[in-house]
Design a protein around this nucleic acid. Sequence first.
DNA 1: CGGAGAAGTGGAAGCGCTTCCAGTTCAGCG
DNA 2: CGCTGAACTGGAAGCGCTTCCACTTCTCCG
Lengths: 343, 343
Amino acid sequence: MEPTPKRMPTLDEVAQRAGVSRTAASRAINNAPHVSRAKREAVERAVRELGFVPNPSAQALATRRVGAVVLAVSSDEPGLFADPFFAEVIVGVSAALEQTDLELILLLANSPRGRERFERLLRSRRADGVMLMALRGDDPLGRLAEEADLPVVFGGLPLAGEPRWYVDADNRGGARLAADHLVRSGRRRPVMITGQVDTRVAVTREQGFTEGLKLAGVPLLGVEAGDFTEEGGAAAMERLLAGRPAPDAVFAASDAMAIGALRTLRLHGLRVPEDVAVVGFNDLASARHTNPPLTTVHQPVRALGQEMARMLVGAIEGHDPSPLILPTRLSVRESAPDVPARA
Amino acid sequence: MEPTPKRMPTLDEVAQRAGVSRTAASRAINNAPHVSRAKREAVERAVRELGFVPNPSAQALATRRVGAVVLAVSSDEPGLFADPFFAEVIVGVSAALEQTDLELILLLANSPRGRERFERLLRSRRADGVMLMALRGDDPLGRLAEEADLPVVFGGLPLAGEPRWYVDADNRGGARLAADHLVRSGRRRPVMITGQVDTRVAVTREQGFTEGLKLAGVPLLGVEAGDFTEEGGAAAMERLLAGRPAPDAVFAASDAMAIGALRTLRLHGLRVPEDVAVVGFNDLASARHTNPPLTTVHQPVRALGQEMARMLVGAIEGHDPSPLILPTRLSVRESAPDVPARA
DNA sequence: CGGAGAAGTGGAAGCGCTTCCAGTTCAGCG
DNA sequence: CGCTGAACTGGAAGCGCTTCCACTTCTCCG
């Protein structure tokens, strides 16, 4: 039926051609010790001439190392993955993995079917390690992964517990920066749009913001939860605007939600930043291009991806890398300028 | 060093426990014929009790089917992958793959190192099939993939030639829709922002737009190339505004570039759509939320991903699926309304 | 009731690579 | 010049699963 796939040369053929044993050939290829210089070179030549590439399945079977890691993104929000945040993480992960010979398996584990596949993937040892992102609440994925006794790196802390390996951004610190900034520029009636309340990142950013305000002695007028999407942010802003007194500043736990908030504010004829200052979180490319450009807490998203991958590789190699908290800082733009806006 | 990974049960153990031969167990598990009902059930029970999951490496070695496909995104533009377009494609691919037991390997093949890895991946038959996206010019990736005599599905036609399997959107038709719409709403001084000139998609959209205008007897005042990014679009618009006479409509070959154009127009104090109508291409979520909301050619991006995956699965199974051109349509919003804007 | 063909059965041979183990070889030294 | 330990060598035993093949057992029909 299918065209016979032209068979690739095997290690045996290489060995034969080089006039050495298969053992020697294997050693030469993996440059292991105990091969004479001469044989090593003969093997190298044969490899080149035959265009030999080792068969990963066979290697995996023999070594119990499959040469792949999986990045699982778990989220119920269907649109969430569209957030460029993930793209950026993937770019980072991919960059780090490029230095190794590990492939990246991407798994969107939102649906029940997806979770099932994830479990199967773990149990069948189809990957040498796992990166987990965007876990909600007590998402079973985390436990599952750890039970599989594969190295697991968390991207962002899960709601409960502290895993052995994780990379996160300094969410609390970043949120405090946002609070400080708003207060310092004269805002006194701040509100916040947080994310799903069952995610650690939402909780932590809210805590940080609240703390920051408390230290400054400014009350938080209201909190509404979005779902980290633009739509969610717009809706949350709508609800916040219904409160009294009217807010003069809003901190959104993601840029996407901040952009949604901008939209709602515009709809209500409110000016940004004159009437309401807006601060987001993430600082991806799009934040620079909103109208007005968005003041936002910057976190090194690509680096986050890179570090996750690096940490995982370390763990796979048997080291015990330390968890990492990446720094955040404020990118001040026009939606919440340094100086108080004069209306 | 590393903790002994608790060994998973093997097929032999399952067979033993079920009191059948390994052959029978294998057949039962893959529900192949030639197994009696009784044995089949005995095996199923044993599998359940032991929590057996077949070892993919061993299966791959024996069957020459690895159970994975690769999605390779090739692009020199570093920021391009951040376009939600790709995320949406991935969601589609992932959804289609979820129905099968194929894993998705994601490969960002921008760097030379990435390309090298891609080639190695192909030659080592680490995947059963390939999906290729965002090829530039005479990108060698396409040929490489086809030479590996693995099924290859192209997402979007490559610049030259027509591959056996591909999924594309009706770019030409979509662009004509844009032209028609602008002309019908009274615009007479249109310009265009195209993509990299060495991509088929840019060329085709430009052709379509040009054709549409020609049929309507309206001249195209200018074309500038962006690079499918927001920045590129903004810069192109800048150049276009330098021309005489001033344009009253602009068609951008992607939403990202259209958004960039909006920004530039705003900077120049031009009103959209009163002074200049803007039409984009893609119609992802963000198009709905620009200011003003973007009129844009809609293409079913997620479906594109799904169809690519489905087509690839078909090809892997030995069928010969037909190439697919997905329909496009116009999403009319305020940046280019139906009726001529009165200034 | 005999025989043909379908269905069921399991031993054994791989799939392609790594690695243990039991030697060999060889340089260096007293 | 014999001896010792380090450095090579390669045969063979897996890694866990599929599948060919040679039988054996049913089923059903004339």
